[in-house]
Amino acid sequence: MIYFPTLLFSIQAYSATTAFIAGTLIVATVLFIIFTSSKGSDDKLAEKHKVYHVRDRYFLILTLAIIVGLIISLRFLPYEQYQGKPAEEVTVVAMQWAWKMAPGISNATPEAFTGESEITLPANKLIRFVVTSQDVNHGFGIYSPEGLLIAQTQAMPQYKNELEHKFTEPGDYHILCMEYCGMPHAYMIGTIHVK
């Protein structure tokens, strides 16, 4: 089994890093080949055909990579119908520039809804956050105690976005706003105490 030090990156970030480094290395290798090839043969047409011969193989590999990439990655979608049955529900209303959170589903309008910027939730249970906004777009981003973004959804006025997440470790998780919402956007903080 591969060991991922979760303190540094999330599994998705590891996948992104690996893919990106591999891609960049391929580009660098191709650049090197092109640069060092400039003093080559006189038969320009034959050289061109060599590249197009490689292209045929590349096309097959790329098609295969796209199919495999889609099959694997589309199994891990963040949308609620893919997550299971939640044990607890939390209403979240974003406003300029604070978070209002309370347990249960609220029927109050976003403006009338009262909640706190801190909430305590259980570990190892699937939680459903029903997220909306009372003014502009915000982004509900959950950061682990180590400072990794582990889940997010947009908080949009007139819409409810349902985000489901299981906190596997106890600790203090923070909510940062992930969508620019006005001047103090970078200071719009909430806290989830997971016990």
């Binding site: 970030a13 893919a19 891609g23 960049t24 990655s73 589309l74 891990f76 997010q152």
Partner: peptide, 20 residues
């Protein structure tokens, strides 16, 4: 390189932790 970085981020499962 920039296009490849976009393809990585256009993967929904990865976008969850890279979006914004």
């Amino acid at each position: 390189i920039g296009g490849f970085a976009a393809v990585v981020d256009s993967t929904i499962a990865v976008n969850t932790v890279l979006h914004n």
